[in-house]
């Protein structure tokens, strides 16, 4: 008797499992046909206020997220966001995991050489964040101090150039997530964080008395959308859609929603 019960339970469980698997497989197929033309956008969702998850822990929000969806509306295509670790974000573009990167990509000559980068859609520059009482006024004065950046960002690249150029930092740390850099600054384990101004504004807004912007790069580092070389048609469509979004005031509205001021003014 016991054996029969056990066998029934096992069979029922297996059936349930099959049903569950079948269900998801069906759903996937449906999605596949429904969104065959979906525009896949790669982003590292963990970079507030540009791209991060809402308090519910799943919904992506932020300036870039809104830009991606607006772009989809202008191109008349569904948008699918693909969350990716930052240090693999360009490799995944190479291997066609998504069509474009909208993830606070700074426009640099190196990146323009390897990828198609659209014209800028938002102004940005590197800034150095320190404690309010710090004496530092520029990166060259960081000798002997501990500095943190996010791995493979333009901030990381700039710090490496300074180090190669002979700047003797006390210590240099690179983190996977920008949030960890600010955690370390708050815990006093680093003296300065080099970061994009669009992100710094967000963190300083929370703690403006204890921290300050010690230095701003004179050279702007506006952000663009990256596509794979050869994907010229889509790039042209995106450029056109971005132009439209500027003309009809969408970008201004989005910027004011996320930054409280129009950080997109005059970048195009």
């Amino acid at each position: 008797m016991k054996r029969i019960i056990a066998l029934t339970v096992v069979l029922a469980l297996m059936l349930a499992l099959f049903a569950a698997c079948g269900g998801t497989a069906d759903k996937k197929e449906e999605d596949g046909t429904a969104s065959a033309g979906a525009l896949k956008i790669g982003m590292e969702i963990g970079y507030p206020p540009m791209e991060y998850v809402d308090a519910d822990g799943v919904t992506p929000i932020g300036f870039d997220v809104d830009v991606a969806y607006e772009l989809g509306r202008h191109l008349n295509r569904e948008v699918e966001l693909v969350d990716t670790a930052w240090d693999a974000i360009f490799t995944s573009l190479d291997s066609n995991r998504y069509d474009a990167i909208i993830s606070s990509v700074s426009i640099t000559p190196e990146r323009q050489e390897k990828y198609i980068i659209t014209k800028a859609y938002i102004a940005n520059k590197l800034v150095l964040i320190t404690a309010a009482d710090s004496q530092v006024t520029k990166p060259e004065e960081l000798a002997g101090l501990r500095v943190a950046t996010q791995t493979e960002t333009t901030a990381d690249i700039m710090m490496n150039e300074l180090i190669d150029g002979g700047l003797a930092l006390g210590d240099y740390f690179v983190y996977d997530k920008i949030i960890q850099c600010f955690d370390e600054l708050k815990l006093g384990r680093v003296d300065a964080v080099m970061v994009d101004s669009v992100v710094a504004a967000y963190y300083l807004g929370e703690d403006s008395e204890r921290y300050k912007t010690a230095w701003e790069n004179d050279e702007g580092e506006p952000l663009g959308i990256a596509l794979k070389k050869g994907n010229d048609d889509l790039a042209a469509q995106i450029e056109m859609a971005l132009d439209e979004m500027y003309a009809d005031g969408t970008m201004k509205t989005l910027a004011e929603k996320h930054f409280g001021r129009d950080v997109t003014e005059g970048v195009r």
Binding site: D87, A88, T91, A148, T151, E152, Q180
Partner: peptide, 23 residues
């Protein structure tokens, strides 16, 4: 340990991967 900014063998590997753009 790369998550607390220690550079171990795996972290160095992925750093080289992204800076040299080769897997």
């Amino acid at each position: 340990v790369s998550t607390i900014a220690l550079v171990d063998l795996m972290k160095r590997t992925s750093q080289i991967q992204s800076s040299q753009a080769t897997a």
